[in-house]
Design a binder for these strands. Structure first.
Lengths: 115, 115
DNA sequence: TTTCGTTATATAAATAAATATATAACGAAA
DNA sequence: TTTCGTTATATATTTATTTATATAACGAAA
Protein backbone atom coordinates (compact mmCIF):
# COMPACT_ATOMS: atom_id res chain seq x y z
CA UNK A 1 0.00 0.00 0.00
CA UNK A 2 1.37 3.35 -1.04
CA UNK A 3 2.02 5.76 1.78
CA UNK A 4 0.46 9.15 1.17
CA UNK A 5 2.81 12.07 1.21
CA UNK A 6 2.17 13.97 4.41
CA UNK A 7 1.97 17.71 4.82
CA UNK A 8 1.95 19.80 7.91
CA UNK A 9 1.31 23.35 8.87
CA UNK A 10 4.17 25.44 10.07
CA UNK A 11 4.73 29.11 10.66
CA UNK A 12 6.24 31.90 12.59
CA UNK A 13 4.92 34.71 14.74
CA UNK A 14 6.41 37.90 16.01
CA UNK A 15 5.50 41.04 17.89
CA UNK A 16 5.85 44.26 15.96
CA UNK A 17 5.32 47.97 16.33
CA UNK A 18 5.05 50.77 13.81
CA UNK A 19 8.83 50.84 13.71
CA UNK A 20 9.01 47.22 12.59
CA UNK A 21 9.67 43.87 14.11
CA UNK A 22 10.29 43.79 17.82
CA UNK A 23 10.35 40.18 18.97
CA UNK A 24 10.46 36.83 17.22
CA UNK A 25 11.86 33.44 18.14
CA UNK A 26 15.41 34.44 17.26
CA UNK A 27 15.42 37.63 19.25
CA UNK A 28 13.91 35.88 22.23
CA UNK A 29 16.61 33.24 22.15
CA UNK A 30 19.19 35.98 21.95
CA UNK A 31 17.77 37.72 25.00
CA UNK A 32 17.76 34.49 26.95
CA UNK A 33 21.36 33.77 26.13
CA UNK A 34 22.37 37.29 27.05
CA UNK A 35 20.57 36.83 30.32
CA UNK A 36 22.32 33.52 30.97
CA UNK A 37 25.81 34.60 29.96
CA UNK A 38 25.72 38.29 30.84
CA UNK A 39 27.36 39.00 27.49
CA UNK A 40 26.21 39.96 24.03
CA UNK A 41 29.37 38.47 22.58
CA UNK A 42 28.91 35.12 24.29
CA UNK A 43 25.27 34.99 23.28
CA UNK A 44 26.25 35.65 19.68
CA UNK A 45 28.90 32.94 19.78
CA UNK A 46 26.43 30.43 21.15
CA UNK A 47 23.97 31.20 18.40
CA UNK A 48 26.68 31.24 15.76
CA UNK A 49 25.87 34.73 14.65
CA UNK A 50 28.24 37.63 14.34
CA UNK A 51 28.60 40.01 17.27
CA UNK A 52 27.58 42.74 14.92
CA UNK A 53 24.28 41.15 14.14
CA UNK A 54 23.56 40.43 17.80
CA UNK A 55 24.41 43.99 18.76
CA UNK A 56 22.24 45.38 15.97
CA UNK A 57 19.31 43.29 17.13
CA UNK A 58 19.71 44.46 20.69
CA UNK A 59 19.91 48.07 19.62
CA UNK A 60 16.87 47.69 17.41
CA UNK A 61 14.87 46.26 20.28
CA UNK A 62 15.99 48.92 22.71
CA UNK A 63 15.06 51.68 20.30
CA UNK A 64 11.55 50.36 19.91
CA UNK A 65 10.84 50.06 23.60
CA UNK A 66 10.25 52.93 25.96
CA UNK A 67 12.53 51.13 28.40
CA UNK A 68 15.50 49.13 27.10
CA UNK A 69 15.38 45.33 27.11
CA UNK A 70 19.14 45.12 27.56
CA UNK A 71 21.51 47.43 29.37
CA UNK A 72 25.19 47.06 28.56
CA UNK A 73 28.37 48.36 30.12
CA UNK A 74 31.86 48.43 28.77
CA UNK A 75 35.09 48.28 30.68
CA UNK A 76 35.62 47.01 34.18
CA UNK A 77 35.69 43.48 35.46
CA UNK A 78 35.47 41.03 32.61
CA UNK A 79 35.72 43.81 30.06
CA UNK A 80 32.08 44.66 30.23
CA UNK A 81 28.70 43.04 30.47
CA UNK A 82 25.08 43.09 29.40
CA UNK A 83 21.99 42.43 31.43
CA UNK A 84 18.40 41.82 30.48
CA UNK A 85 16.09 44.30 32.17
CA UNK A 86 12.80 43.54 33.87
CA UNK A 87 11.21 45.01 30.78
CA UNK A 88 13.12 42.49 28.68
CA UNK A 89 12.09 39.60 30.87
CA UNK A 90 8.47 40.60 30.57
CA UNK A 91 8.83 40.71 26.81
CA UNK A 92 10.33 37.22 26.76
CA UNK A 93 7.55 35.89 28.94
CA UNK A 94 4.82 37.49 26.84
CA UNK A 95 6.23 36.09 23.67
CA UNK A 96 6.43 32.60 25.13
CA UNK A 97 2.78 32.68 26.07
CA UNK A 98 1.90 33.64 22.52
CA UNK A 99 4.31 31.12 21.06
CA UNK A 100 2.76 28.35 23.10
CA UNK A 101 -0.70 29.25 21.86
CA UNK A 102 0.62 29.34 18.33
CA UNK A 103 2.12 25.88 18.68
CA UNK A 104 -1.27 24.63 19.72
CA UNK A 105 -2.83 26.33 16.74
CA UNK A 106 -0.35 24.69 14.38
CA UNK A 107 -0.83 21.28 15.88
CA UNK A 108 -4.58 21.59 15.82
CA UNK A 109 -4.66 22.59 12.18
CA UNK A 110 -1.91 20.30 10.93
CA UNK A 111 -4.06 17.22 11.03
CA UNK A 112 -5.71 16.24 7.82
CA UNK A 113 -3.95 18.48 5.38
CA UNK A 114 -4.63 16.52 2.24
CA UNK A 115 -4.88 17.33 -1.44
CA UNK B 1 -1.54 62.20 28.50
CA UNK B 2 1.22 60.17 26.88
CA UNK B 3 0.07 57.64 24.35
CA UNK B 4 1.49 54.17 25.02
CA UNK B 5 3.43 52.61 22.21
CA UNK B 6 1.27 49.87 20.75
CA UNK B 7 2.38 46.44 19.69
CA UNK B 8 0.61 43.81 17.71
CA UNK B 9 1.05 40.20 16.85
CA UNK B 10 1.88 39.27 13.29
CA UNK B 11 3.10 36.16 11.57
CA UNK B 12 3.15 33.86 8.64
CA UNK B 13 2.07 30.32 8.02
CA UNK B 14 2.86 27.80 5.33
CA UNK B 15 2.28 24.19 4.43
CA UNK B 16 5.38 22.05 4.20
CA UNK B 17 6.45 18.49 3.53
CA UNK B 18 9.66 16.62 4.23
CA UNK B 19 11.06 18.13 1.04
CA UNK B 20 10.54 21.64 2.34
CA UNK B 21 8.07 24.43 1.93
CA UNK B 22 5.12 23.77 -0.31
CA UNK B 23 2.66 26.63 0.02
CA UNK B 24 2.78 30.06 1.61
CA UNK B 25 1.08 33.35 0.85
CA UNK B 26 3.44 34.16 -2.01
CA UNK B 27 3.10 30.85 -3.77
CA UNK B 28 -0.65 30.96 -3.43
CA UNK B 29 -0.77 34.38 -5.02
CA UNK B 30 1.41 33.11 -7.81
CA UNK B 31 -0.91 30.19 -8.46
CA UNK B 32 -3.91 32.47 -8.54
CA UNK B 33 -2.30 34.78 -11.02
CA UNK B 34 -1.28 31.86 -13.20
CA UNK B 35 -4.84 30.66 -13.07
CA UNK B 36 -6.19 34.07 -14.02
CA UNK B 37 -3.70 34.80 -16.79
CA UNK B 38 -2.93 31.32 -18.04
CA UNK B 39 0.73 32.27 -18.09
CA UNK B 40 3.68 31.91 -15.76
CA UNK B 41 5.33 34.87 -17.39
CA UNK B 42 2.34 37.16 -16.97
CA UNK B 43 1.93 36.07 -13.35
CA UNK B 44 5.58 36.85 -12.70
CA UNK B 45 5.25 40.27 -14.30
CA UNK B 46 2.21 41.10 -12.20
CA UNK B 47 4.04 40.16 -9.04
CA UNK B 48 7.19 41.94 -10.15
CA UNK B 49 9.33 38.87 -9.83
CA UNK B 50 11.58 37.37 -12.44
CA UNK B 51 10.21 34.65 -14.68
CA UNK B 52 13.00 32.48 -13.42
CA UNK B 53 11.87 32.74 -9.86
CA UNK B 54 8.24 32.11 -10.73
CA UNK B 55 9.20 29.09 -12.79
CA UNK B 56 11.40 27.74 -10.00
CA UNK B 57 8.57 28.07 -7.51
CA UNK B 58 6.17 26.25 -9.80
CA UNK B 59 8.66 23.46 -10.38
CA UNK B 60 9.33 23.15 -6.68
CA UNK B 61 5.64 22.81 -5.95
CA UNK B 62 5.08 20.30 -8.71
CA UNK B 63 7.96 18.16 -7.51
CA UNK B 64 6.55 17.99 -4.01
CA UNK B 65 3.09 16.96 -5.06
CA UNK B 66 2.10 13.57 -6.39
CA UNK B 67 0.06 15.41 -8.98
CA UNK B 68 1.29 18.73 -10.39
CA UNK B 69 -0.35 21.99 -9.35
CA UNK B 70 0.46 23.59 -12.68
CA UNK B 71 0.70 22.03 -16.11
CA UNK B 72 2.45 24.05 -18.76
CA UNK B 73 2.75 23.77 -22.51
CA UNK B 74 5.08 25.49 -24.87
CA UNK B 75 4.47 26.43 -28.45
CA UNK B 76 1.17 26.79 -30.21
CA UNK B 77 -1.37 29.55 -29.96
CA UNK B 78 -0.08 32.38 -27.85
CA UNK B 79 3.33 30.75 -27.60
CA UNK B 80 2.32 28.47 -24.80
CA UNK B 81 0.33 28.46 -21.62
CA UNK B 82 0.06 27.25 -18.06
CA UNK B 83 -2.98 26.02 -16.20
CA UNK B 84 -3.63 25.38 -12.56
CA UNK B 85 -4.81 21.81 -12.02
CA UNK B 86 -7.66 20.68 -9.82
CA UNK B 87 -4.96 19.60 -7.40
CA UNK B 88 -3.62 23.12 -7.41
CA UNK B 89 -7.02 24.64 -6.82
CA UNK B 90 -7.56 22.38 -3.87
CA UNK B 91 -4.23 23.45 -2.45
CA UNK B 92 -5.15 27.12 -2.81
CA UNK B 93 -8.47 26.55 -1.13
CA UNK B 94 -6.95 24.60 1.74
CA UNK B 95 -4.40 27.26 2.37
CA UNK B 96 -7.03 29.97 2.43
CA UNK B 97 -9.01 28.15 5.05
CA UNK B 98 -5.93 27.91 7.22
CA UNK B 99 -4.93 31.49 6.51
CA UNK B 100 -8.34 32.72 7.58
CA UNK B 101 -8.10 30.83 10.85
CA UNK B 102 -4.66 32.23 11.38
CA UNK B 103 -5.87 35.78 10.86
CA UNK B 104 -8.43 35.18 13.56
CA UNK B 105 -5.73 33.82 15.82
CA UNK B 106 -3.60 36.91 15.28
CA UNK B 107 -6.46 39.28 15.89
CA UNK B 108 -7.54 37.45 19.00
CA UNK B 109 -4.07 37.52 20.51
CA UNK B 110 -3.02 40.97 19.40
CA UNK B 111 -5.11 42.71 21.97
CA UNK B 112 -3.34 43.73 25.12
CA UNK B 113 0.24 43.15 24.22
CA UNK B 114 1.86 45.36 26.79
CA UNK B 115 5.21 45.49 28.48
C1' DT C 1 49.08 52.81 35.37
C1' DT C 2 48.77 48.47 33.03
C1' DT C 3 46.04 44.67 31.81
C1' DC C 4 41.90 42.45 30.44
C1' DG C 5 37.83 41.17 27.63
C1' DT C 6 33.88 43.35 26.34
C1' DT C 7 31.13 47.03 24.17
C1' DA C 8 30.69 50.05 20.27
C1' DT C 9 31.62 51.32 15.67
C1' DA C 10 33.32 51.56 10.91
C1' DT C 11 34.81 49.39 6.90
C1' DA C 12 36.11 45.46 3.94
C1' DA C 13 35.23 40.92 2.38
C1' DA C 14 32.55 37.10 1.48
C1' DT C 15 28.27 34.80 0.71
C1' DA C 16 23.70 34.37 -0.74
C1' DA C 17 19.72 35.71 -3.33
C1' DA C 18 17.50 37.88 -6.93
C1' DT C 19 17.53 39.72 -11.46
C1' DA C 20 18.98 40.27 -16.19
C1' DT C 21 20.26 38.42 -20.47
C1' DA C 22 20.49 35.12 -24.04
C1' DT C 23 18.97 31.19 -26.55
C1' DA C 24 16.81 26.77 -27.83
C1' DA C 25 12.46 24.26 -28.07
C1' DC C 26 7.89 24.25 -29.07
C1' DG C 27 3.42 23.87 -31.85
C1' DA C 28 -0.87 26.13 -33.45
C1' DA C 29 -2.28 29.17 -36.94
C1' DA C 30 -1.65 32.03 -40.83
C1' DT D 1 7.15 26.80 -43.72
C1' DT D 2 7.18 31.12 -41.32
C1' DT D 3 5.69 33.66 -37.49
C1' DC D 4 4.56 34.31 -32.78
C1' DG D 5 5.00 34.54 -27.68
C1' DT D 6 5.70 31.43 -24.24
C1' DT D 7 8.15 27.68 -21.81
C1' DA D 8 12.56 25.92 -20.40
C1' DT D 9 17.27 26.45 -19.36
C1' DA D 10 21.98 28.18 -18.68
C1' DT D 11 24.95 31.78 -17.52
C1' DA D 12 26.24 36.47 -16.17
C1' DT D 13 25.29 40.45 -13.55
C1' DT D 14 23.55 42.90 -9.90
C1' DT D 15 21.82 43.57 -5.41
C1' DA D 16 21.21 42.44 -0.69
C1' DT D 17 22.62 40.24 3.39
C1' DT D 18 25.87 38.37 6.39
C1' DT D 19 30.29 37.80 8.19
C1' DA D 20 35.07 39.12 9.01
C1' DT D 21 38.41 42.33 10.41
C1' DA D 22 40.20 46.23 12.73
C1' DT D 23 40.20 49.66 16.24
C1' DA D 24 38.79 52.93 19.85
C1' DA D 25 36.52 53.38 24.33
C1' DC D 26 35.84 51.72 28.66
C1' DG D 27 36.54 50.90 33.84
C1' DA D 28 37.38 47.55 37.59
C1' DA D 29 41.08 45.15 39.53
C1' DA D 30 45.77 43.83 40.03
Amino acid sequence: MKEDKSFKLNGRIWIESDSGRLLGPGRVELLERIKASGSIRQAALQMEMSYRQAWDLVEDMNKQMEMPVVISHRGGKGGGNAIVTEQGEKAIEQFYILQKKFQKFLKLNSSKIQF
